[in-house]
Design a protein around this nucleic acid. Structure first.
Length: 196
DNA sequence: TAGGCCATCTGGTCCT
DNA sequence: AGGACCAGATGGCCTA
């Protein structure tokens, strides 16, 4: 069980709340406490974090599991030729880029959530819920498309004519099958709304 | 208060 | 070489 430390960092931003001040805690100096070849011990907020080595990366030439903690043994640090100040500046720039990257990722999650029916309005979905819901929605739509396979144009670029035919097919599908294909998806949506 | 979720920092690795 | 990507760590907020 990890501890839930005290409040030291500024209150966090949300997706829609663009970072007003990228300044970081002035006395943190990322990397400045790190001696060449020594164990890293950096200060984050008010707490000290010893030995970042163990937590490091796992991917070693491929996706998934791979190395695990094993790689930590003889891992070499990248040669550092720049000064502490230069490293600190690069770290801050890197942090900013990472923040922007995560904001873009969050925007994509937001867009995905808005693309899924029935979840726009009330409650904000968590990321895992968004992904799961999207998966189920895609599956249900796939089911519908497969059922309508006979109606789909065999080949070629879809024309206005084929689009109209597709719509007609879909309406016919709804008449015959109802929304059975969406049942699983809707059930999932319902269960989520029940929880909140 | 525990637990879930999130934002952010960080350093290693991959890619261009 | 530098940026992108990734995952671990940590702390804050919120809710049951």
């Amino acid at each position: 069980m990890r501890s839930k430390g005290k409040a030291t960092k500024p209150s966090r931003m949300t997706w829609s709340d663009p970072d007003p001040d990228p300044e970081l805690e002035p006395d943190t100096e990322p990397g400045s406490s790190e001696q060449e070849g020594s164990e890293a011990s950096v200060r984050i907020g008010s707490s000290w974090r010893g030995s970042l080595r163990s937590g490091g990366r796992k991917r070693q030439g491929g996706t998934g599991g791979g190395g695990g903690g094993g790689g930590g043994g003889g891992r070499r640090r990248r040669q550092r030729s720049s000064s502490n100040k230069e490293r600190s500046v690069r770290r801050l720039e890197s942090n900013e880029r990472e923040r922007q990257r995560m904001h873009k990722l969050n925007n994509a999650f937001q867009a995905l959530q808005e693309a899924i029916p029935h979840v726009k309005t009330d409650k904000k979905l968590s990321k895992i819920e968004t992904l799961t819901l999207a998966k189920n929605y895609i599956k249900s739509l796939t089911g519908i498309i497969l059922d309508m396979g006979a109606c789909l144009p065999a080949e070629g670029v879809p024309s206005e004519d084929s689009a109209a035919k597709l719509l007609q097919c879909y309406q016919q599908h709804l008449e015959e099958e109802g929304e059975a294909d969406l049942t699983q998806y809707l059930t999932h949506v319902h269960s989520l709304s029940q929880r909140s």
